[in-house]
Simulated assay, not measured.
Amino acid sequence: MKQHKLEANHINVGYDKKEVIDDLSVTLPDGKISVIIGANACGKSTLLKTYARLLQPKKGEILLDGKNIHLENTKELAKVIGLLPQSPIAPEGIRVSDLVARGRFPHQGFMSSLTEKDYEAIQEALEMMKIADLADRSIDELSGGQRQRVWIAMALAQQTDILFLDEPTTYLDITYQIEILDLLKELNETKKTTIIMVLHDINLSARYADHIIALKDGDLVAEGNPCNIVNEDLIKTVFNLNCSVISDPISHTPLIIPIGKYPRKEEGCQI
């Protein structure tokens, strides 16, 4: 994978007259996994979409290797940046392999058919997501976790250096969440793909992220390695949640223990 510098430079982003992000500047670390966290409606997905050129800043700019991405050729940009949005919709009855093949569009010429290189990229993506055995199945027949792996495989077939994923684990049970995040971690480690995600689960974010970007009301509160920035004060500021932060005994990353109104049982569990 090529090295890239992707940065938000004093961006303001909003919808109609509502401003969501105000004067934000963040450079994404190359070859790492970054996770954007924050409470609902704080601007997480807005920031991700702006980085991926789905939204244009009202002020400031998104720079890829020093160039404004809104001035770049769309098809050429799609060879560098891939995006898996929230709740993508597949054509009814489409086969898994045909959906994954759509990721090769940026690499194809006008009216050209799939080449040997395209088929190799498709097969590699299927194997990386461990769904090669599902290639001839209709996506309508698959479970939620299997479908999510198919969508990620389509993004992988695009063979981009940078991959954005907007809440890739939403609506999945914990087994599928861990499975998807493990596969993305493997992709990052083997291909050095720069991955940027929006996640709701702060503990999974801390476990899988190399770099966390914490937002509140469209403002950057903190960014950095989870071990350096995730603490009780950050969680209180970002989520308005009282908590205790301990070391995860498995990953040795921050583990958030929420403190609610009724945190104690009269008799504890013997485990």
Rank of each mutant, 00 (worst) to 15 (best):
S251M: 08
E179N: 07
K75I: 00
L255Q: 14
G224L: 09
A153K: 04
H252Q: 13
I36P: 11
I174K: 05
A132T: 06
D133K: 14
H252Y: 11
L71K: 10
L48I: 08
L64Q: 05
L63K: 15
K58A: 14
E223K: 08
I235S: 04
V238D: 06
K265R: 12
H70P: 02
C227E: 13
M154I: 05
L234N: 00
S45Q: 08
A101F: 09
D248S: 02
L77Y: 02
Q270T: 12
D161N: 12
P226M: 13
T253L: 06
P263A: 00
T74N: 15
T193W: 13
Y208L: 14
T175R: 14
W151L: 03
A90R: 07
I229F: 10
L63V: 01
I139S: 03
F110P: 05
L6F: 04
K79F: 01
D98T: 09
W151T: 02
I180G: 02
D133N: 14
D182W: 08
D23W: 08
A206W: 06
I33F: 04
Q123S: 15
N225Y: 11
I195K: 04
H211V: 08
T190K: 11
K185W: 07
A206F: 04
K236E: 15
K58C: 03
L114F: 11
L84I: 12
D16H: 09
G31L: 08
T169D: 02
G260F: 06
K59G: 07
A125M: 12
Q159R: 11
N203K: 06
R264A: 10
L24E: 05
L172W: 01
G43E: 05
K59S: 14
G14R: 02
S113R: 14
T46N: 07
K2S: 15
W151V: 01
A155T: 09
I62E: 05
S97P: 00
I139R: 11
V35K: 03
E92A: 11
E7G: 04
L64D: 01
I69Y: 02
P106F: 11
Y262P: 00
K32L: 13
A121T: 00
L134A: 06
T190Q: 10
E179I: 10
Q270A: 11
Q146W: 03
V238R: 04
I256M: 08
L187V: 15
K2R: 14
I11V: 10
D22Q: 15
E120H: 09
D16V: 08
A90N: 00
I162F: 02
L241A: 14
A90H: 03
A41V: 13
D173V: 12
H10S: 09
P254S: 12
K261E: 13
D233T: 15
L163Q: 03
L163Y: 02
R137C: 00
I36N: 15
L47R: 12
